[in-house]
Design a protein around this nucleic acid. Structure first.
Lengths: 192, 192, 192, 192
DNA sequence: AATGAATGAGTTTTCATTCAT
DNA sequence: TATGAATGAAAACTCATTCAT
């Protein structure tokens, strides 16, 4: 059943979060998933081969979080705030996973896959900017596709940096988010 | 000789680039460095303990590249262009290492060290912005420290994305750099 | 259907030829046989339990080949030539299987079975010699049963050696066959 | 030290003899050799990779046994008897190893090696026959190289068959040896 | 009878680290 | 300092066999 594959992926995410990248073992994953060691290898050829599936889940989580936070009725600025909130929130919970995925990219035998997996995320952001541009809220020179990449990279990297160095300092996160919002608003040339 | 330590660090960089974080072995590193297995442990207490040294080298490389490209006599915009050039250039050559360092950060233990290592990089950028702000080139609301983090994250992440997905497409890099420059100029509220 | 059992045996022969004894898996056999993993165990109690059936098939092949080649109307020498031809021919095609069966013998459990399986082969050869002896063609001291073992061992081992070390060299096979024939004729004390 | 490699090879021979092919484990071998598990892999890349070394030792054992038994002062017939004794003796003690080596040959990635390893054995036998031929003891048509192969194959295969099917029956071995001797004397056309 | 996903004990294999030289 | 063979605990991975369907 595909149920088993799901369980492996989610167990893998949990274990990586708890134990960190280096110390996570397949045996931990299967224990958490409640399956036999051998079953793991029916679904994934090796420990590394789970990564694309994890990335997929992370993208899904991100899109769900964004959709939960961003209300169509809100103003563009509020929507942007919500996007930043969403990215910070997911990054806080899954910072290690994100780092692991980046590292996984490096040793990629999967490059083609990664593009496919991430495209919905970039596509959403691009669409979000397109809409705003059509509504004449952004400067004319904004290219939605290019800017989507910039926005995602910018927000994620600041979020990572935030939760990496300021464990528990809640104010710091708020300050960072505000600073990001402010910079992005100017970067996009948002008309108030 | 300190020469040996250097050789270990550079061999480690090479091996991590080639094999990725999971598969790099101490035996590969020492082979490449041309030293004995045991010698490694004279200079580094463990395999992970090389990481800070690698990060250090990367930061140095980055600052050297920036100092080579950025001329004090240039206008702020040209200097910014040069910074972007520098970051893209280093990222192109050492993308895997950057990813690895991010992942290495995750398995912490060294957190304190990391901040010390990276601070010259952030400090340079902050100083760069401070100077521009004093010269009234930027919008008043720019906070140099905060914005340094934003700028570095933004440029690096786009650079990574560029070289990860568009192997060899030279035009793509140019387009991305321009787009980044444009966005940053607006984000900083640069007065032309 | 008994058809399935046949398919398993022949698939097993193929797989053992291709992969060798150590690396052959039940999963390979069932894949080749086009049946489910579990079905294997309906027909054979374990992986090793196929071996006797394989040996049986090999003996049958050998006897069929001999019966095809050896004509009753031929002279003894021509019949002997044909026997050598037959053994060389089968060995050429199934060298790996023969070796595997020898190895399989080692892990016994089935010793009794093996004797039963091989006896028709030895019996044929013994009968062949008995007839010649009755016709006064062989030296008086030939013991048909003992000599059958000698003859089979002799021909098979040279054939194996031939096809193992002289891949594709057709002349070599002819030379070896002639040498074997010559030696055996003297060994049997054949009266011309 | 090369001492370790030796110990692994001899432990491997012991274990294969005791446990049979299928059931021998690397862990058994290292236990018997008195070394660590990992040490095995310094000297041999896998369990199968020990085989050529084992074959080498077997050839050496055989030549030592032959040299012990065959006295130059003996008549050719007595020398031949001693050769048969030697081959039967070694086969009795290491039948499983021989079978394993044959099977190993089948899955050969080592074919080239095997020829080199076995050549001293064939060379000895060829030289043995050459000498007898020069002394006019054999029929003129004997080709020493070809006949060496025939002789070795003949004696070994009967010996294997003997110890496989007549466990403990000492008389049977004697009968077989006599029969082989007799057949070979005729085959070689030995002049009494 | 047939299936094939699941099992998990058993094995191989790895590799960071040590230590006698 | 430098060496590199040796270690062995720890991990990955295999695969014959079972069993619910």
């Amino acid at each position: 059943m595909d149920n088993k594959k799901e369980r492996i992926i989610h167990a893998a995410i949990d274990v990586f979060c708890e134990k960190g990248i280096e110390k996570a073992k397949v045996s931990d994953i299967v224990k958490k998933a409640g399956i036999a060691q051998g079953t793991f290898y029916i679904y994934f050829s090796s420990k590394l081969a789970v990564m694309p599936s994890i990335a997929q889940v992370m993208v899904e989580k991100m899109l769900v979080e964004i959709n939960n936070k961003v209300k169509n009725s809100d103003s563009f600025i509020d929507q942007l705030k919500s996007v930043i909130e969403a990215v910070f929130s997911i990054t806080k919970d899954f910072r290690e996973i994100q780092a692991m995925i980046y590292a996984g990219l490096a040793s990629a035998e999967f490059l083609q896959e990664w593009e496919t997996i991430y495209s919905p995320y970039y596509a959403w952001m691009s669409e979000f900017l397109s809409l705003a541009k059509e509504n004449n809220i952004l400067r004319d020179t904004v290219d939605p596709d290019q800017t989507a990449v910039i926005l995602i990279g910018l927000i994620e990297s600041v979020a990572e940096q935030t939760f990496l160095y300021s464990h528990g300092d809640r104010d710091m996160a708020e300050i960072k988010k505000n600073e990001v919002l402010n910079f992005v608003l100017h970067g996009l040339g948002v008309k108030f």
